[in-house]
Structures are given as structure tokens and as C-alpha cells.
């Protein structure tokens, strides 16, 4: 579930508001998105993929954590923006789709490609 909208990183581009498939975000008074309907978050990570400045963090647990994780620790651990990096979105990156060839699921079978 969405845990962090980084005030330091956010550039108020409204992209997350537009792309969230379950309409979780509203624009806050200061321009930083607020989690207006957080219970509707389906933990799909799409907002992270579209955030151009890696300002969002979706925890993989589909329920809210008792305390939000520490932003500095996440950044230090390379977890802010890690999904966007993996799928190869962002300037200067190669789309992850180009390398998406998985292992064959059985000895005779073709490699998995998603």
C-alpha cells in the first residue's frame, strides 16, 4: 500500500493523481498530492512507475503499516524508485521489456517471457 509521498522530491506534476487506477490521490493545498482514498490502494506499484522523480513508495504489504517507513533509510537502501529502475523507465535507461526473458518452466518448454 502507498506509504510515502516525499515532500522533498515531489515536483507537483500531478502524474500520480492522473495515473492511479483506483483514484487514491488528490492535489493537496500546497500542491503535494495527498492520500485521499488510501484504502482503495491496490498495491499495484503503477504510481511509482510513472513518478518522474521517485517521490513515491509503495510497501508490498496490501495493508497500511503501523508507522510509515523511514524515507532516508529507503533512499539509502536504493528502494525509492527501484521499480521504475527495474522496468527501465526514465531518461537514459533501456526498457526492461528488452531483457525480459525468463527461465523455461519445464525442460522441453520455451523460456518464459513475462
Amino acid at each position: 500500500m502507498i506509504e510515502i509521498v516525499s515532500r522533498d522530491r515531489c515536483i507537483s506534476c500531478d502524474k500520480c493523481i492522473a495515473v492511479c487506477p483506483t483514484n487514491v490521490f488528490d492535489r493537496g493545498e500546497d500542491g503535494i498530492p495527498v492520500l485521499a482514498r488510501r484504502d482503495d490502494c491496490q498495491t499495484c506499484f503503477m504510481c511509482e512507475a510513472y513518478c518522474p522523480v521517485d517521490a513515491l513508495f509503495v510497501d508490498p504489504r496490501s495493508h497500511p503499516l503501523p508507522e510509515p517507513p523511514d524515507e532516508a533509510a529507503l533512499a539509502a537502501g536504493g528502494l525509492l524508485g527501484s521499480y521504475r529502475e527495474r522496468i527501465g523507465w526514465g531518461r537514459g535507461r533501456t526498457p526492461g521489456a528488452r531483457f525480459a526473458v525468463g527461465p523455461s518452466l519445464d525442460r522441453a518448454g520455451a523460456p518464459l517471457t513475462s
Binding site: F45, A100, G102, P103
Partner: peptide, 24 residues
């Protein structure tokens, strides 16, 4: 039951599969 090579291929093929693991 995955070889190191298969493990590497999994990461390339399905980035989101690893989010729950890497983030916990």
C-alpha cells in the same frame, strides 16, 4: 529449485515478482 542462471532470468522477466521480497 532454481539454478543461479534461472534466478537471474526470473529477475529480468518479472521485475514486480521481486518487489515483496526486496522490500521486506
Amino acid at each position: 529449485r532454481a539454478t543461479p542462471e534461472q534466478q537471474r532470468a526470473m529477475r529480468l522477466a518479472q521485475a514486480n515478482f521481486f518487489l515483496p521480497f526486496d522490500r521486506q
